[in-house]
Amino acid sequence: MGGSDTAEYTIKKGKAMEELFRLASNYGFPMVVVGYLLLRLEPPFGNCKKVLTS
């Protein structure tokens, strides 16, 4: 990772944090946490479904 790549990643991460704080202020912290967990856990549950149905 070069210097500019690191700076670009930091900017994207900063914008993501701003968006997270905006969502938390609009919808409430518990709703944001639940949404984040659903997005993070969806792929493993999809894999479990494939295993169980085959």
Rank of each mutant, 00 (worst) to 15 (best):
M1Y: 11
M1R: 12
M1Q: 07
M1S: 14
G2E: 12
G2K: 11
G2I: 00
G2W: 09
G3C: 07
G3M: 12
G3I: 11
G3A: 12
G3N: 09
S4L: 14
S4R: 14
D5M: 06
D5N: 06
D5G: 04
D5C: 01
T6A: 14
T6P: 02
T6R: 15
T6L: 15
T6F: 12
A7D: 12
E8N: 10
E8F: 11
E8R: 13
Y9D: 12
I11Q: 08
I11G: 03
K12C: 02
K12R: 13
K12L: 05
K13T: 12
K13Y: 09
G14W: 05
G14F: 04
G14Q: 06
K15I: 02
K15C: 00
K15V: 06
K15A: 00
K15P: 02
A16E: 07
A16N: 09
A16K: 07
A16H: 03
M17W: 05
M17V: 09
M17D: 02
E18T: 08
E18V: 08
E19R: 15
E19K: 15
L20W: 07
L20S: 13
L20C: 05
F21C: 03
F21Y: 07
F21E: 03
R22D: 04
R22G: 06
L23M: 08
L23H: 10
A24R: 04
A24H: 00
A24E: 03
A24F: 00
S25E: 12
S25N: 13
S25Q: 13
S25H: 12
N26K: 15
N26E: 15
N26M: 14
N26G: 04
N26D: 13
Y27S: 09
G28V: 06
G28M: 04
G28D: 06
G28L: 02
F29G: 06
P30A: 11
P30K: 13
P30E: 10
P30R: 09
M31Q: 15
M31I: 08
V32N: 07
V32K: 11
V33I: 15
V33W: 09
V33M: 14
V34N: 11
V34D: 14
G35H: 08
G35D: 03
G35N: 07
G35A: 12
Y36R: 08
Y36I: 15
Y36T: 14
L37W: 13
L37D: 07
L37A: 14
L37S: 14
L37N: 14
L37E: 13
L37Q: 14
L38Q: 09
L38V: 04
R40Q: 09
L41H: 04
L41I: 08
E42H: 07
E42K: 13
P43F: 06
P43S: 01
P43E: 00
P43Y: 00
P44E: 04
P44V: 03
P44Y: 01
F45W: 12
F45D: 00
F45T: 03
F45G: 02
F45I: 10
G46L: 03
G46T: 02
N47F: 08
N47G: 05
C48L: 15
C48T: 11
C48G: 10
K49P: 00
K49I: 05
K49L: 04
K50W: 04
K50T: 00
K50V: 00
V51C: 03
V51D: 01
V51R: 06
V51A: 06
L52P: 01
L52D: 00
L52H: 01
L52I: 02
L52E: 00
T53N: 11
T53M: 08
S54W: 01
S54P: 02
S54V: 04
S54E: 04
